[in-house]
């Protein structure tokens, strides 16, 4: 179970995930000042997903981990830039959205392969749930972090 990729793969994945996220950010009218950070957020999530997929960790784990990292980076950026987490997480999750399986499902249905189409729909549903789960885990992390900060502040004051 080794991870094999060339540096070319790496560069392509880094650059393209960044461009894709920024491209989506443009279409949802993101504030100018955070556009690069949202791109970085998408990049981080995609790289985790990609590396895990290469390590044959399975779709579920890769998506959960990818979404978790997106949420994490989004929370950190939001704390730093003082704006809602949504600004980073919405574009950041775009590369993880199961577009290819969704299209494959439609394609199978068109060709009359209904069972194969249903299989693909199932795959889309599972990936979507995985993304939502990963993102929720990062929300949990954020709550824990907030509590930790609050407790530390209270201790400092004493």
């Amino acid at each position: 179970m080794g991870i094999h990729f060339t540096s070319f793969d790496l560069v392509i994945n880094l650059i393209f995930s960044y461009i894709a996220t920024v491209g989506f950010a443009l279409t949802v009218n993101i504030p100018h000042r955070v556009i690069h950070y949202s791109g970085l957020c998408g990049l981080a999530g995609w790289m985790v997903y990609w590396l895990l997929t290469l390590a044959s960790a399975g779709r579920l784990l890769s998506n959960v981990a990818g979404a978790f990292v997106v949420g994490l980076v989004a929370v950190l950026f939001a704390k730093w830039k003082k704006c809602p987490v949504t600004l980073f997480s919405v574009p950041g999750l775009v590369p993880l959205v199961p577009g290819a399986p969704a299209y494959m499902a439609v394609r199978r249905f068109i060709d009359g392969h209904y069972m194969a189409g249903m299989q693909m729909i199932m795959r889309v549903a599972i990936i979507t749930v995985a993304i939502a789960l990963g993102f929720l885990l990062s929300t949990l992390f954020q709550e824990a972090l907030n509590k930790l900060i609050k407790r530390r502040r209270a201790r400092l004051r004493r």
Binding site: I12, N13, F16, S17, I19, A20, V22, G23, F24, A25, L26, T27, W46, W50, V94, P95, G99
Partner: peptide, 13 residues
């Protein structure tokens, strides 16, 4: 332009 960039890059990814 953003939409175009998105479709081109996501296809590869």
């Amino acid at each position: 332009l953003g939409a175009g960039a998105l479709s081109a890059t996501l296809m590869v990814l």
